[in-house]
Computed example of a mutant assay.
Amino acid sequence: MGVLNRLLLLGYGLLFLMVATLGLSFAFKFGLDREGLEGWVNKLYRNPGARWTVAAVSAMILAFSLRLLWVTVHKDKEDPGVDRLTEIGHIRISCKTLESLAIKAAHRVKGIRDLSARVRQDAARSSVGIGLKLTVEGDTPIQVLSEQLQQSVKTHVEEIAGVDVSQISVYIVDTVQPDRSRIRVE
Rank of each mutant, 00 (worst) to 15 (best):
L9K: 01
L10C: 05
G13C: 07
L22D: 04
L22F: 11
L24K: 01
G31T: 01
R34E: 10
G39T: 14
W40R: 12
V41F: 14
Y45P: 08
N47L: 02
R51N: 08
A55N: 10
A56W: 01
V57T: 12
M60F: 09
I61R: 06
A63V: 06
F64T: 05
F64P: 07
R67G: 11
L69K: 00
V71K: 03
D76H: 04
K77L: 12
E78D: 06
P80E: 02
P80I: 11
I88F: 12
G89P: 08
H90E: 13
H90C: 00
I91L: 10
I93R: 12
T97V: 15
L98I: 01
E99L: 09
L101M: 09
I103F: 00
A106K: 02
R108V: 13
V109H: 07
V109P: 11
V109S: 11
K110E: 14
I112Q: 11
R113W: 08
R113H: 08
D114H: 11
A117F: 00
R118P: 04
R118K: 15
Q121A: 13
D122R: 07
A123T: 14
A123N: 14
V128E: 00
I130E: 07
L134R: 03
E137M: 05
E137D: 06
G138C: 09
D139A: 06
T140E: 04
I142E: 02
Q143A: 13
Q151P: 08
S152N: 04
V153L: 03
K154C: 07
I160S: 03
A161E: 10
V163F: 08
D164K: 15
D164A: 15
Q167I: 11
Q167R: 14
V173A: 15
V173T: 11
V173H: 12
P178C: 06
D179M: 07
R180F: 03
R180S: 01
R182F: 14
V185F: 04
